[in-house]
Each structure stands twice: as C-alpha cells, then as structure tokens.
C-alpha cells in the first residue's frame, strides 16, 4: 500500500485452531496472499507450543534458526518485515509457562509477567518490529472489579515492561478489547493515565472499541498523542451493555453460545451494516499525522484469503490508496 500511512496485515485469522497453519507451505501461502493484496508487512500473534510455530518466539526461532532466518522466510513471499507482535500474558501458555494462569490485576503475578515478556521483547526487537502489542488485563468476567488502585497496579506492570521495551528500542502498546476488565472509556483513560507516556502507548482497535461501546473516532481525537498502534477492522454488533460479563464470554458472547446467538462478531472493512466509520477514522489519523502502523485484520471470520482480498479492495477503492 503506497500511502503516507503505514499499512500492515495481521496473520491471526489464519491460525483458527491448534492444529492448523502449522506447515511452512501453508504459512507461505498466507504470506503470499497478504503480499498479493498489497501488504508487505505483517503482525504476528502469540501462541504456544510446537504447532504455533509462527506465533511463539522460541518456536519461530527453532523453525528458522534466527531472527534473520525468519525474515528470510517472510521475504521468500515478498513480505518485508514485521510491524508488531501481539501478546496476552493472561492466556496460559501451556508449554512455555507451565500453563499458569496469571493476571496483571494480581500483584503477586507481576514479577512472573515481567519475566514472561522477555522472549517477546527480544523477538520484537530482533526482527525489527516496532511494537509489542499487549492485552493489558484479563477478561472482566474473570477479574474482580477494579477500582482506581487496581488500575494503577495494572499500569505499574506495564510501566515495568515498558522500561524493557524502551531499552530494546521498541514500543509497548496496550490493546483494548471488548471483553477486558478495563472496559469503559473512563477506565481506559485511567489506565493510560497510570502509565508512562514515554514508553507505553495505546493500541486502538476500531472493532473492539465499537463492540465495547467506545466510539473509536472520538476517543482517537481526544487521545491521539497516546495512540501508537492501530488495528483496523469492522463489526456488525455492539455489546448490549453487559454481555461481556457473562461467564465464559470468549465463547458465550463471542461465539454466540449463550447470548444472542451471534456467532461471528468481526468483519472485513466495508462489510454490509458495519458499525465502524472507517473513512472518518482514517481521516482522523491523517489529520493528526499518525505515524505508527495501521494493521488491518479480520480476526476469526471465515475464509482468510477472501477477507484479506476484500480488505485490500476497500483500501484501494474506498480509501483510494494505490496498492504499489
């Protein structure tokens, strides 16, 4: 994408189950698809174990020998590099972390989480990526209610990790999602206030904001100085107000199990009935001369190649961005 904004594409939508997207030729096909759609930079998502070998730093290195080896692998498909990597310390990593459940909301877990971040920080720096994108806190239904102190404690963990990322020359971006215990605009702002602007930024995901009831355009305009990373995707639904608190919301809400039977929440840009005003949001980014990565993704929503192509079409024809 030839633009003043820098565009990347997220690979997460290909890795929809534990035993898929494992073979190198499958990964090459995804990378070529992304490349053919006009993106030469990708975002990675974290995972665990031997079948997540384009997700977990240690396993990527085991596959490709070194950071350079991995970049060579990407370049075989004309993908030039990695913009960023997503990591959720609350997601138990079976193989690397002994399946321990930890939460930034629990002070006793802070040291372990800071320790766990190290392979990610090293990897992000090693492959020349700019941002470590993180889930700042676990799901609301699993977390006791947070008061101001609680949010401050979470901020402290990220300040500590922010020191590590800064020392390695990369950014740390907190990624709000619609299930997180930091849920309202006020809570999110409090979390930003609790972190050091010099080392910790916000990853603004347009669909997650919209589902969670925060208008992404307004919030961006008010906090543009803190936004260091963007996930651009669309949704057709918003939380009715408290679905995110349902036990097992990852499945009861986002897979339609116990709620409104909405079995798919996230959509490609330009989807019919999409709630995100993508055009206005991108215009706001341009107004503020946003300089970070804009990562397009479609999360888990059907055929990955089809969604990548529809996203590319939207960028080219609705936003008028030349592909090359």
């Amino acid at each position: 994408m030839r633009d003043t904004l820098r565009w990347a594409y997220a690979l997460n939508q290909w890795n929809v189950r534990l035993d898929v997207f494992v073979r190198h030729e499958d990964q090459q096909r995804a990378l070529k698809t992304v490349s053919a759609c006009g993106f030469d930079t990708i975002e990675l998502a974290s995972g665990t174990g031997r079948w997540d070998n384009i997700s977990r730093p240690e396993v990527i290195l085991l596959n490709h020998g070194s950071h350079a080896g991995f970049l060579d692998f990407l370049r075989r498909a004309s993908v030039q590099g990695v913009s960023s990597m997503f990591w959720d310390p609350q997601a138990p990593a079976e193989e690397e972390e002994g399946y321990a459940f930890r939460s930034t909301a629990n002070p006793a877990d802070a040291d372990a989480i800071v320790e766990w971040s190290k392979p990610f920080v090293d990897f992000v720096a090693g492959v020349g990526a700019e941002q470590l994108v993180v889930r700042p806190v676990g799901s609301a239904w699993m977390t006791p209610p947070l008061d101001g102190d609680g949010i401050k404690r979470i901020g402290d963990v990220w300040n500590r990790i922010g020191e590590l990322t800064s020392a390695s020359g990369v950014g740390l971006a907190l990624h709000y999602d619609c299930l997180g215990a930091v849920h309202t605009a006020e809570e999110l702002t409090a979390l930003l206030d609790a972190t050091d602007p010099a080392s910790v930024g916000l990853a603004l995901d347009t669909a997650e904001f919209t589902v969670g009831g925060i208008d992404p355009v307004t919030y961006y305009r008010e906090h543009a100085d803190r936004v260091t990373h963007i996930h651009l995707k669309d949704t057709r639904y918003a939380d009715t107000g408290d679905e995110y608190r349902m036990p097992g919301a990852e499945s009861t809400m986002l897979k339609g199990g116990a709620g409104r039977r909405i079995e798919r929440w996230f959509y490609e840009l330009g989807t019919e009935g999409g709630l995100v005003d993508v055009r206005a949001f991108v215009a706001a980014l341009r107004e503020h001369e946003y300089s970070g990565w804009v990562v397009v993704e479609s999360d888990h929503g059907g055929n990955p190649a089809e969604l990548a192509m529809l996203n590319s079409w939207y960028l080219q024809h609705e936003l008028g961005i030349p592909k090359s």
Binding site: K32, S35, C37, A77, E306
Partner: peptide, 16 residues
C-alpha cells in the same frame, strides 16, 4: 482447495 487463496497466490506469482 480454495479459490480466493489460489487467486491470490497466482497473482502473487505473476507479480513477483
């Protein structure tokens, strides 16, 4: 197989 993916791969090949 999958048409979307095959189409992307083939166009990738043409271009690259």
């Amino acid at each position: 197989g999958d048409y979307s993916e095959s189409t992307a791969i083939s166009r990738w090949y043409a271009k690259n």
